[in-house]
Write a protein that binds this DNA or RNA. Structure first.
Lengths: 186, 186
DNA sequence: TCCTACATGTAAGGTGTTACATGATTCC
DNA sequence: GGAATCATGTAACACCTTACATGTAGGA
């Protein structure tokens, strides 16, 4: 089983969806920690179905194309549970920005500052985004959000991770910008 | 040009190295934000050389195999500068752990706690690692570490990012563990 | 004797992205 | 008329990992 497969199972465990809907989920809500294109999702769904982890039924629609609604099977839920409860290896975080910062000494000071300011802006947007997500979750689920056995809490927990991360990255950006400013020749 | 290519140029900009040494750099020091295997590096070095961005000379050694020492060319340094100074797209952080947390509601409370405790331990190790790296850099470079035009400062800046990240992840882990504990039935 | 470090490569397979391909409906 | 949304797929390519392949020297 691939990780994408588990990502799909994780979304389908919350309710039946079409491949198209799954693709949208993997662009934004879940997309902040795992992305995928539809061209990857459709074949993967076929593989999951062959393995008996999901099933689908065709829903006829008027005024728009028919769609296949996929649902997770008992076997699928069990496979997902198994995967979630096993620790797994430490992931390698690939960060292009850090690669650039590693070579920042090569470029002009003002270019470096421009680069980091753009990044600062990006993290600010991320932060705002996660705050919006959390506000929406709070409005929709209320007290249920504090129950760790609910899907809503789990969505909140992942967004909380993103929020804290964005904050720490923002701190780092500003620290770096300060360093870049100190030795400046006016 | 691939990102791996720029990663190699970024290391070679600090001094000539063999493919083997580059592979080691991309396992640990740089490896905390970009990893690569030797099987990927050797062909990439050949491509960089074909493009005139690096060159090599064979160094004969006794008691051990000959090696090819690669150095960055002027064209390579310029290409690297170009790449570093352009902002680039926002990266998609793929995080398997967050995918698991997203489905945490499916598993038993004690399993979830075990999972997060293991993760907490992992982040603690990361934190210690970055602190060691920074201590080593401080011991080796001293005051030069504060000069943003030095390669040493850039190495420090990347480790600083890793350190802050590890800290925020640790905070998140503990927040989640607290949430998992609150609704516990003893 | 076996394992690790040094040193360089190729081959096969898995994963992920971009582009190709089609077609109805709705909004500007 | 053109763009966006809904809806599903295939094909080609780029990227990355694992395994295969070879050989010396030194330490446990």
């Amino acid at each position: 089983m691939t990780t994408l497969g588990y990502a799909l199972l994780g979304i389908l465990a919350r309710g039946p969806l079409s491949g198209y809907d799954l693709a949208r989920n993997l662009q934004l809500p879940v997309g902040y920690f795992w992305q995928a294109n539809h061209s990857h999702i459709y074949p993967e769904l076929a593989r999951l179905e062959e393995a008996g982890l999901v099933g689908h039924e065709v829903v006829r629609q008027e005024h728009r194309p028919n769609k296949k609604m996929y649902s997770i099977t008992d076997a699928g839920r069990e496979a997902l549970r198994q995967w979630v409860s096993t620790p797994g290896e430490a992931a390698v975080p690939r960060d292009e920005l850090l690669l650039k910062v590693f070579s920042l000494w090569l470029i002009e000071r003002h270019q470096a500052i421009t680069l980091m300011r753009a990044q600062e802006q990006r993290y600010l947007e991320q932060l705002a985004h996660f705050e919006t997500i959390q506000a929406n979750l709070a409005a929709e689920f209320g007290a249920a959000l504090h129950n760790p056995d609910s899907p809503a809490f789990c969505a909140f927990a992942t967004s909380q991770c993103g929020l804290l991360r964005a904050r720490s990255q923002l701190d780092w950006c500003r620290w770096l910008l300060k360093q870049l400013g100190w030795n400046e020749t006016p």
